[in-house]
Every structure is written in C-alpha cells, then in structure tokens.
Amino acid sequence: MSAALIEARGVTKILAGVVPVTLVQDIDLAIVPREFVAVTGPSGSGKSSLLYLLGLLDLPSSGDVLIDGRSTTSMTENDRAEVRLKRIGFVFQFHFLLPEFTITENVALPMRALGQLPSRAITARAEQLLASFGLGDHRRKTPDQLSGGQRQRVAVARALANDPPVILADEPTGSLDSVATAQVFGILRELVTLHGKTVVAVTHDLALAAQMHRRIHIIDGRVARDERVASATA
C-alpha cells in the first residue's frame, strides 16, 4: 500500500459546552493516493465533522491528523491554511462560491492566494478548468446566473485550482437533482480514474457510495465499517 496522504490517529472531537457533545471518537484511518472514498452514516453521526478534521478546518480535541506524514496538531493556523491551500481542495454541499465574483474569478481565488502564477496564467488555467467541466461559455457569469449543478461544477473546478492531490467533498450532490448528481459524481470519479486524485466524499446516497472504492461507515462518531471494494465501478 502507498504511504497515506491523510491519516487520522486516535482522533476525537468533543464540542465543549454545558453538555459536551462528542462529534467523533477515537478514529484511526488512512487515506492513500488515488482512493475514491465514501463516508457514510446517518445524520448527526459525525461524517462531516470527520471530513473537517481531515481537511484541517477543525482541530481534534485529542489525537492527530497527519498530512503527507506530517503531524498537524502542532502547526500554527497559518501553516494549516497553507496545507489547505496547496494539498487539499474542498467541495461543500452548497457551492459556497463568492456571489460578487464571476465564476472565473472564483476558480482563480485559490491560485491568486497561492501567488505562484502570473495573473494571465491564473485566468487561463481557471478558464481551462471551467471549459473542461463544460462551463467555458459561462466563464463571465456570476454564480447566481448558473444552475445548481453548474455551480457545483464550478466549486469542483475551484477545488482543483491549485492541483491538490486530495479533494474533500461534503455531500457534493446533496442539493442536486439526479441529472446534476450524475454529472458531478462523474467528474469526481474522473478525478480519481483519469487524474490520479484522491477523493473523500461524505454522502447519504448509498447508490453512489456503492460505486466508490472504499466506504467508511460512521455511527455515533466511530468507524463502524471500513470496506474496500476492489470491484467498484470506478
């Protein structure tokens, strides 16, 4: 097996409060390159919380998350931001695009934040990404001028902007109709099969999960099942 891109070691997240709430508990798992992973489970089971912890959006109460073998608990917020910028792309249930910017500008944002490419190259890459997802003709439009499926494709394009090896998707098809769901899922699958990315997606849709390489089932914040399916469609 390849070295893990993301690894959770004894990760627990407890929300402090009058009554502390345990979101995830004692999770150990490793995500390796080119995996297409489904995180499933009932509502409130801790799927999204696990995804945020793996994506360094949240800090575990105990345990550690390793990215490329590096511990992240001792990192500063800026270091974690840099890891997110370079190594992880996020896709959320709602597109979460910036409404005042064109979709090209939205896709360009992570590249501009990274600041490694000149302005023209950034725009060219953003347009190329949009074109590859069939949105070339819409590049000057703002998110509110697109359909839900189109917006989610823009969100995937933005997640890929800095060419990260891992895409973390939180119910990426949760708010889409069946046609758009098929399109977005197809794109995610192609990211793994054609572009060698690793995709970890939280989903309620067991039919989609059945088409993925690995299914991690979460119940009450714990990993109830972790199945690798060699014969999955992907």
Partner: peptide, 16 residues
Amino acid sequence: TRDIAIMKSLGFRDHT
C-alpha cells in the same frame, strides 16, 4: 461571514 469561512477553508491566511 460565510465568504470569510469559504476563503479560510480555501487556505486564505488570517492576515489576508
């Protein structure tokens, strides 16, 4: 606030 959260999730630093 939502946009700020998005930007931070994309990797924007606090000082940015």
